[in-house]
């Protein structure tokens, strides 16, 4: 499904995409190709949906406060509660999971106080307890994703 070149680009450029005036020309030089063929290859990958974007990977926690929240929502209320959660701009991910704690969402706000206030509001409205699970340590090692 992927050509050798496509695979090489995916494996080689999950880190250190050039931050220079002509990044695709720099890639082309490293790959011994023309700039046009690099751009063509990336357009193809984009069109096939194999790459979701070319650009910065942001670390939300460096821009403010964030947390992961879990709620145990009775099945018959799931839709309504999910709609409430989703209505907050501060919520950017919300997943249903196969567990007693079946609703999992990420909150990002400017300050920790904003988060506490938002969670208190959700508890008051829904009358459901929630688990506030802020990250304490990130054991992240940037390996990229072998393809």
């Amino acid at each position: 499904m992927l050509s050798p070149l496509e695979r090489q680009i995916l494996n080689q450029y999950q880190h250190h995409f050039p931050l220079s005036t002509t990044p695709y020309a720099d890639m082309a030089k490293a790959l011994k190709l023309s700039e046009a063929s690099v751009i063509h290859c990336l357009r193809g990958l984009m069109r096939k949906g194999v790459i979701s974007r070319i650009g910065p990977v942001f670390q939300a926690k460096k821009m403010g406060a964030s947390t992961l929240v879990a709620m145990a929502v009775p099945t018959e209320r799931l839709e309504t509660v999910a709609a409430l959660i989703n209505s907050y701009e501060e919520v950017n991910h919300n997943y249903e999971r196969n567990h007693q704690f079946n609703l999992w969402f990420v909150v990002i706000a400017q300050t920790w106080a904003d988060i506490i206030q938002l969670l208190a509001e959700i508890e008051t409205i829904t009358q459901l307890p929630l688990l506030n699970l802020p990250m304490e340590t990130d054991y992240y090692i940037d390996l990229g994703f072998p393809i």
Binding site: H15, F17, L42, S52, I54, M63
Partner: peptide
């Protein structure tokens, strides 16, 4: 704030 600049696979 930026972890890396990347070709991000789906």
């Amino acid at each position: 704030i930026i972890r890396r600049i990347a070709v991000v696979p789906n």
